[in-house]
Computed example of a mutant assay.
Amino acid sequence: MEFPAYLATMPMHAITEIHGEPGLLARFRLEIRAFDAAARERLTAALDLAAELHRDDRRVREPYLNHLLRVAIRMMHHYQVRDVDVIVAGLLHDAVEDHPVELAALRRPQAPAAAHRPGAVGDDPTAAALATLADRFGPRVARLVGAVTNPPYDPERDRHVQYREHVAASLDREPWARVIKISDFTDNGVGVIHTVGPKVARSAAKYRPLVPVFRDLIARPDTPLSAPVKRHIFAQLDLAEERFSAILDQPN
């Protein structure tokens, strides 16, 4: 498929609408040209695994892989991230939450003693899935994905409140996980206008209270982003807040 020469500068929502998944894949390959051969190999392996795990998943009108590609592209292009572990974790940030059993099944066989040890990862699909990521991409990638993976929620408490508590607590101690999560939030929050149906209001209600949480996290000195990138993210948070208000604060 032929793509325009300016694909590398097109807004991602435009690539998504005009060219779909093939266009986002082409843009991803353009972005990773900035990396050396070993890094490109790791990034491609992460993309292939994400595509395999999410091959049947959809987000309303599009393949789920589009979301993962946009999260990774945004980090490389807009946030100027060159840390390969972080981009790999961005591509796989929903793998453990959405497909723990499938991911755990891909793990290399354990030695019998380890496999039958009480509390071994085989007893817990989430732990086993994270162990698979550690085997394939290293413990840091697994730790970052773990930080952005939602825990089981207490059915007696409000899910949105628990989600905000988890985000604030897990990202407090993982500065690079903040970078992954803000790219994810931007795709979901700023991108809420590209959603259709009842999910629009549900998403706005879920994400609006997170805006001040992310403002605080991104503003912290240990968040590993440059001042211009932080200003860009703050502008995106302003835009998300405007869109949430337009959706939720309409007069009766």
Rank of each mutant, 00 (worst) to 15 (best):
M1E: 11
M1L: 12
E2I: 09
P4N: 08
A5M: 10
Y6N: 14
Y6P: 03
A8T: 13
P11I: 03
E17Y: 10
I18Q: 14
H19E: 03
E21F: 01
E21W: 01
P22W: 03
P22S: 02
L25W: 02
R27T: 12
R29G: 11
L30H: 11
R33D: 13
A34F: 04
A39G: 03
L43A: 00
T44W: 01
A46S: 09
L47G: 00
L47E: 09
L49P: 09
A51S: 13
H54D: 13
R55M: 07
D56L: 12
N66L: 08
N66Q: 11
L69A: 01
V71D: 01
A72G: 03
M75K: 02
H78A: 14
Y79Q: 15
Q80R: 14
Q80W: 09
R82V: 06
R82P: 02
D83N: 10
V86T: 15
V88A: 05
V88M: 04
A89I: 03
A89P: 02
G90N: 02
L92M: 05
H93F: 06
D94R: 06
V96M: 03
E97H: 14
H99G: 01
V101F: 01
V101H: 12
E102D: 15
A104R: 05
A104H: 00
A105W: 00
L106D: 08
R107A: 15
P109D: 05
P109C: 06
P109T: 04
A111M: 08
A111E: 14
P112E: 09
A115G: 10
R117V: 07
G119R: 01
D124F: 04
T126Q: 10
L130Y: 01
A131F: 01
A134T: 05
D135K: 04
G138P: 01
G138M: 04
V141Y: 07
R143V: 08
G146V: 03
V148H: 04
P152W: 06
Y153A: 14
D154C: 05
D154M: 07
E156H: 14
D158K: 10
H160L: 13
V161Q: 14
Y163A: 04
Y163S: 08
E165I: 06
S170E: 12
L171F: 02
L171P: 03
E174F: 00
E174Y: 02
W176D: 15
A177R: 02
V179D: 00
K181D: 14
K181Q: 15
I182E: 02
I182V: 15
S183C: 12
F185Y: 15
V192D: 00
V192R: 04
V192P: 02
V192K: 03
P198V: 04
K199Q: 15
K206W: 08
K206P: 01
Y207T: 01
R208S: 06
R208Y: 00
V213K: 05
V213E: 07
R215D: 01
R215M: 04
D216E: 15
D216N: 13
D216Q: 14
I218D: 06
R220M: 07
T223Q: 07
P224L: 12
P224R: 11
P224H: 08
P224E: 13
L225Q: 10
P228I: 07
K230L: 06
R231L: 07
H232T: 13
H232E: 09
F234M: 13
E242S: 11
E242D: 13
A246G: 12
P251C: 04
